[in-house]
Design a protein around this nucleic acid. Structure first.
Length: 231
DNA sequence: TACCAGGTGACTG
DNA sequence: CAGTCACATGGT
């Protein structure tokens, strides 16, 4: 049991300094990996707590099975859908989630995904949250990466990096972490897109569960340091 | 071999 | 409201 460092509320400049460091290290990342709004939306569901590698295999399966539209998901039997998405893990649960999403778009937007995504973000997000299987992160993935509207995505990487940087949040909920970014950054979709992409890259390659601090571009401004007190 | 990966909903005290 | 659990495949 070592001393935990004192957390503090970061400034806008602190957030931009981290962004600029990571951006200099990695350059533009062109997120989300996926071409269409459809691919991005179902990819967001399939990626829940799952390695992205497994999602790409699943997207290939769906495409080659001809299950590549809201309508196709809507009419495909649950069991067949589940079998097709097996590589993404939680395949029974996720098959239901895909069906719920397709039923939502079909029932409330006549099957027109683009019509749904055309809603302003402050209306789109709560509508998405009514769908069984779409939680806050998945909703924000769709709002930011499929609809192109600024809603900052909070995932496990983001939480870990924020915690290690010693950035204090008002609580431990999704909204508390999101507020940290929303209150300090201009609400710009391109900025939110690239910032989150950088956090994912940094969290996956460097700020791992066992951090590789010797290669970290944030080392001199990170209180956790090369010998993390609490992991 | 455990652990981890771009979470969510159900349930409990 | 905060904590715990099930859900599941594939890579290291």
């Amino acid at each position: 049991m070592t001393h935990p460092f004192q957390k503090r509320s970061p400034s806008s400049d602190d957030l931009m300094a981290v962004y600029n460091r990571l951006n200099a290290a990695h350059g533009p990342l062109h997120w989300w990996p996926g071409e269409s709004a459809f691919e991005i939306s179902i990819g967001a569901i399939l990626a829940q707590n799952t390695a992205w590698r497994n999602v790409t295999a699943t997207l290939r399966n769906l495409r080659s099975a001809g299950i590549w539209s809201i309508q196709a998901i809507h009419r495909t039997p649950l069991e067949r859908l589940a079998e097709t998405i097996r590589p993404s893990g939680y395949f029974n649960t996720k098959a239901r989630k895909l069906k719920e999403f397709a039923a939502f778009i079909t029932g409330q937007f006549g099957g027109d995904l683009d019509a749904c995504l055309a809603l302003p973000g402050h209306q789109l997000r709560p509508r998405l949250l009514t769908v069984w299987g779409i939680g806050e992160e998945t909703a924000d993935d769709v709002v930011l990466y499929a609809a192109g509207q600024p809603s900052f995505v909070i995932d496990a990487y983001t939480r870990r990096i924020v915690d290690r940087l010693g950035w204090r949040t008002s609580g431990n909920r999704y909204a508390d972490y999101q507020a940290l970014f929303h209150e300090r950054l201009p609400h710009d979709a391109a900025l939110f897109n690239q910032y989150h992409a950088l956090l994912v890259r940094h969290g996956a390659r460097t700020c791992r569960p066992k951090p590789l601090c010797e290669r970290c571009p944030l080392l001199d401004i990170c209180p956790t340091g090369p010998n993390p007190a609490e992991g």
